[in-house]
Simulated assay, not measured.
Amino acid sequence: MDKIKVAVSGANGKMGQEVLRMVINDPELELVAAIDLKMSAIDIGQVIGHEPIGINFDNDIEQALTQKQPDVLVDFTNPQAVHNNVKTAIKYNVCPVVGTTGLQAEDIAEFNRLLKQQELGGIFAPNFAIGAILMMRFAEQAAKYMPNVEIIELHHDQKIDAPSGTALKTAEMIKEVRSSFKQGLEDEFEKVPGSRGGEYDGFRIHSVRLPGFIAHQEVIFGSSGQVLTIKHDSIHRESFMPGVNLAVKKVKGFVGAIYGLDKLID
């Protein structure tokens, strides 16, 4: 069985480095390119605490994809870079697996169109932690019976977007099963603007950004005489790697864009 050839963009970031380690340690995968705009001519082993790999960082994604010809591009960059990276991958018949957040529904729709034109698959996941996927599914089930809900998501202070992609995906799943209504008092007011969080379909999403956090979320449901809290904590970035691994191995098996890792698990 041929190995799946993998390129990683944003390879010198914290998530990118975890992906490099994961790919290197999986006998079914072959790392062929590590792409990062700020790195070049440096063996990736030097930055991931590994002996020399024989693969240097590339800082030109188009050149890397044409020369190394990967099957899959794993992207953990930023909202400004991801659009070009995905379109470049599709252009060269490389399946994108994207963990970069900040994408909008219209972005996914555009990628879906381009992927279908090229008969490629792509996976766009706001969260790759299996526990986080279960949290979202449990929240979706709970919302059918306890429609009063608020979401609190907590991330490190270097995260650029708010709310998180995971929080938005959770909110979308809840909206699908919950009748729309505005929660709280009709004449409620904020003494400090924004203190009640952002409003989505009548309920609130709160974003916390502090040093020390990785990725955390609570979905709190309230009903007469009871409160239900569904919580997930990623305490290390390696928590995302089983999901990334699953996506890399599944993405060549379909055509078009999949939004959310939940579509890949039973």
Rank of each mutant, 00 (worst) to 15 (best):
T66G: 07
L37M: 14
K38Y: 13
G16L: 02
K144I: 01
L37V: 13
D187S: 05
L228I: 10
R137T: 01
D161L: 11
D107M: 01
D233W: 02
F203V: 00
Q46P: 03
P242S: 14
A64Y: 00
L37R: 13
V248L: 11
S179F: 02
A7D: 11
M173D: 06
Q80R: 11
I123K: 03
I24Q: 11
S9P: 09
P193V: 01
E51A: 14
E218F: 08
D43W: 03
G121R: 00
K3Y: 09
L228N: 12
P27Q: 15
L37N: 12
A171K: 03
Q226G: 05
K87Q: 08
A215D: 11
F111L: 04
S239C: 13
I61L: 15
N12W: 02
K182D: 05
R137E: 10
H83N: 05
I90Q: 03
A132I: 00
L103N: 07
S164C: 05
G16R: 02
L37G: 13
D157P: 01
K3I: 03
L264G: 02
Q69C: 02
P147K: 10
F124Y: 15
D43E: 06
G10I: 00
K250N: 09
F189T: 12
A34C: 14
S40L: 08
E188P: 00
I42V: 15
G212H: 05
A33V: 00
N78Q: 11
H83L: 06
L264T: 04
I133L: 07
E106I: 00
D262A: 10
P193Y: 04
D107L: 01
G256C: 14
H83W: 00
L103H: 07
Q183M: 11
F189D: 05
F76Y: 07
P27K: 10
